[in-house]
Each structure stands twice: as C-alpha cells, then as structure tokens.
Simulated assay, not measured.
Amino acid sequence: MVELLYVNKSNGVATVVIKNPPMNVLSQQVTKELDIVFGQLEEDNEVISIILTGDGEKAFMAGADIKEFPERDAEKGDEIDTHTVFNRIENIPKPTIAVLNGFTLGGGLELALTCDIRIAENHAKIGLPEVNLGLLPGAGGTQRLPRIVGSSKAKEMMFTGSPVDAEEAHKLGIVNKVVPKGEGREAAEKLANKLANQSLQALSRIKRLVNVGSELPLEEGLEMEKQLFNDLFVTEDAKEGVSAFIEKRKPVFTHK
C-alpha cells in the first residue's frame, strides 16, 4: 500500500510527490513505495513523462532517515535494496524530471541524479553530507555525481559534505534549470507536457542510447544507435511523424 507518495496523472504526465514530513526523508517505506509506483508507471500505457518532487516548500528530500540507521543490519543491508530501486527509476523507459523544491541532500540528491532532467528552485541546497556522519554516499552518489561534475569536484563535495546552492549546481551541470521559489512544478509541467506530445517509441530509445550507449566504446555505441534507429524507423509513430512532416501538419503519435 502506498501511503507516503501520491500520484497525479493528466494528459500523459504523471506527477509523483514524496510526502514524508517534515523533510521528505528517504525511509525504507519511501524506498518501497518508489519501487511500487515506478513499477506501475512503467507499465501504464497512458503515462509518457514523469515528474518527481517533494511535498511542501522545504525539501525535495533531505537525505535518508537517520533514525533507521541503528536498526540496520550491517551484513544483510537494508530490507529493500536502494540501488535496485534507484536503477529502476534511472532506466524506466520514459523521460523523468525531478523538481528540487528545497533541501536536496544525501539520498535526496542521489535520487534526483537518477532522473533525466533536474529543475531546481532558487532556494534549494544540494549536496552529499554523509561524511559528516562518518559515512559515504551509499545510494549511487559516488558513481553518478562524478559522471556529471567530474571526479575532482565530486570528491570536494563528498569530502567536505558542504552543499552548493541552486545557481552553483546549475553551473556544475547538476541541474538543467533554476527557477524562482514555488515555480518548479509549473516549469516541470510545461516541459513534461511537451515531452508527452512526442513519441514514446523515440523517447525511450533516445534514453536507452544515452544511458547505456554512453558507457560503451564509441564504435559499439554507434552500432547500437544504428540498430535502434532501424528498429524505430518501422514503427507506426515514425511513419506518422514522416507523413505529418510531408503533409505539413502536427503528428498524432500513438506510441506504437
């Protein structure tokens, strides 16, 4: 049962809101519910793009639920594997947009990094402060952040535990866009609606090529691109897109 997330769907866009007051921390229950919800959204043919954000104005997600740490079994790990859940979110074959509407720390930043696009409100504080607890980022931060900002800056952020503000995060490439406080959801909805009008057949292949192909040697990546382009070319959406262009009209994609 989902109690700490709520989902709204409209015109091909699903908005997932984390509601775990006061700071929307990543508890085991939130992790379980993220797994459930994103599993459902992956299978939902009416959903083309997804927005993920936190409830309220204080936080997207201010890290893990530290109160659960003393109960953690060091040998068995968490009850549900966070890496498995985050990998599912990262690789869901639909575009995802995270709205960072406040503190985005620790597990919150690690969750945001699994999304394709990140929009930050200008009051957001973004970082990986685990070192201050004598710990390290354990939900993908040590691997995903360096791929965005480079190893040296990633080490600095993780060694010091100091957060950056939204503008600095934008300069570093952690976020795609910065908007005024309270306007993140609107900006994300505008983009998500635009994406929802595209063909999911094309969107999903683009995402796969970037996520998987960018880790391959160039020749293998290009071969993968060639194969997926050929696969896409024979879909109904590709035929519709080409016909619409020739006929000078807006395409109507059915995602088939």
Rank of each mutant, 00 (worst) to 15 (best):
T104K: 09
G107M: 04
G108I: 03
L109G: 07
L111T: 08
A112L: 10
L113P: 07
T114V: 02
R118C: 00
I119C: 06
I119M: 06
A120N: 11
E121G: 06
N122E: 12
I126N: 08
I126P: 06
G127H: 11
G127V: 09
L128R: 10
L128F: 03
P129K: 08
P129H: 03
P129M: 03
V131K: 10
N132P: 00
N132Q: 14
G134F: 03
G134M: 01
L136R: 15
G138C: 04
A139K: 10
G140D: 08
G140N: 09
R144W: 01
R144T: 04
L145G: 04
P146V: 05
I148E: 03
V149M: 04
V149S: 05
G150H: 12
S151D: 05
S151L: 11
K153M: 14
K153E: 13
K153Y: 03
K155P: 01
E156S: 04
M157N: 09
M157D: 08
M158E: 13
M158G: 14
F159G: 01
G161T: 08
G161K: 12
G161V: 09
G161N: 06
S162V: 13
S162A: 15
D165E: 07
A166K: 11
A166E: 02
E167V: 11
A169T: 13
H170V: 05
K171T: 13
I174K: 14
I174Q: 13
I174R: 14
N176H: 15
N176C: 06
K177S: 08
V178N: 12
V178S: 11
V178Y: 10
